[in-house]
C-alpha cells in the first residue's frame, strides 16, 4: 500500500451565493479506505461530495488527489479536460437514483460498455465480453444484456449502475445514498455487493448516507456533518458506539432498536 493519501482535503468549502453549503472540511482518504459521511438532510454532505468529485467548485481551501501516475493534483487547478480524464479512468460516481447515472434507453451492455468506449475500446467482441463479466459480478442474468434499464427493477438498476462505474477499474468511487431508494431486503443485497467489490478491488470509497446502519456495515471511518461543518469524525465503530458530539448522540439514539 502506498504511503500517500489518495485524497487530501484541507479546509475546503463551497459557497451558494452568500452562504456556505459546507465549510472548513479537512480529512485524508487513503487507498482502499471507505469513508462514510452521515448527517441529516441539509447538513451539507451532498455538497461536500459534489465538491470532492468536482461537480461543484472549491471556493475555499484545497483538495489534492494523488493520481495513478503518482502526480499530486490540485483539483481546483485542473482543466475540464483533465477532470474528464479522471472521471473516465480513475473515478466513479454512483447516484442515489440509478436513472441519473444510467442511460435508460440504452441496453445494459451498452451502459457498461460506454465507459470502456470512452477510454478508447474499439472492439465490439471484447466490450461485450467485459460487459458479460460485469453483469455476472453484479448478479444480473446474462440474458438481460440487451434489455434497457427501463425494464429493470430498482435493485437491478442500482447494481447495473455500480457495474458501469467499476468496469474501467477506478481507484476512487463516490456514492450518494446508493441504497436509499431501495426496499430493505434489496438494500441489504446491494450493500453486500458493494462491500464485496470494495474488498476485492481495493477501492477507496466516499459514501454519503443518512442511514447509520449503512455506515456501520461498510465504512472504516465516519464523518458526521451538521449545518455544513464536520462535527465529529473517527473510526466508524468509535463514532457510533461512543459518540462525543451532542448531535451524534442524538443521531445514534434515534435509530430504532429492533
Amino acid at each position: 500500500m502506498s504511503e500517500q493519501a489518495l485524497l487530501t482535503v484541507e479546509g475546503a468549502g463551497h459557497r451558494y451565493g452568500e452562504r456556505f453549503g459546507c465549510r472548513g472540511v479537512s480529512f485524508d482518504l487513503w487507498p482502499g479506505e471507505v469513508l462514510a459521511i452521515v448527517g441529516e438532510s441539509g447538513s451539507g454532505k451532498s455538497t461536500l461530495l459534489g465538491m470532492l468529485s468536482q461537480r461543484l467548485a472549491i471556493d475555499e481551501g484545497a483538495i489534492r488527489y494523488a493520481a495513478a501516475d503518482g502526480r499530486a493534483l490540485d483539483l481546483a487547478q485542473l482543466s475540464d479536460r483533465e477532470i474528464r480524464t479522471l472521471w473516465r479512468s480513475e473515478w466513479g460516481f454512483v447516484h442515489q437514483n440509478a436513472a441519473d447515472g444510467l442511460r435508460m434507453h440504452v441496453s445494459a451492455g451498452g451502459n457498461i460498455g460506454e465507459p470502456l468506449m470512452a477510454t478508447g475500446w474499439r472492439h465490439y467482441g471484447r466490450i461485450r465480453e467485459r460487459a458479460l463479466e460485469w453483469l455476472a459480478k453484479v448478479e444480473i442474468p446474462s440474458e438481460r444484456i440487451d434489455d434497457p434499464p427501463t425494464t429493470f427493477s430498482g435493485g437491478m438498476r442500482q447494481r447495473l449502475q455500480i457495474a458501469r462505474n467499476l468496469v474501467v477499474g477506478p481507484r476512487l468511487v463516490f456514492m450518494d445514498e446508493p441504497t436509499s431508494g431501495l426496499d430493505v431486503s434489496v438494500q441489504a443485497a446491494v450493500l453486500d455487493l458493494i462491500r464485496g467489490l470494495v474488498q476485492e478491488l481495493g477501492l477507496a470509497v466516499v459514501i454519503v448516507t443518512h442511514d447509520l446502519a449503512v455506515a456501520r456495515l461498510i465504512s472504516h471511518r465516519t464523518m458526521v456533518m451538521k449545518d455544513g461543518a464536520v462535527i465529529e469524525s473517527g473510526l466508524t465503530d468509535r463514532v457510533l458506539d461512543d459518540p462525543q458530539a451532542p448531535y451524534t448522540q442524538l443521531l445514534v439514539s434515534s435509530i430504532l432498536q429492533g
Binding site: 475540464d80 474528464r84 470512452a118 465490439y124
Partner: peptide, 22 residues
C-alpha cells in the same frame, strides 16, 4: 458542446454498439 470541445466521443460508439447488439 462540451463533449465536442473535449473530444469526448465515447458515446457515439454506444449507438453503434446498440446497433450490433440488436
Amino acid at each position: 458542446r462540451r463533449m465536442h470541445a473535449l473530444q469526448d466521443y465515447g458515446l457515439i460508439y454506444v449507438k453503434l454498439y446498440e446497433d450490433i447488439a440488436r
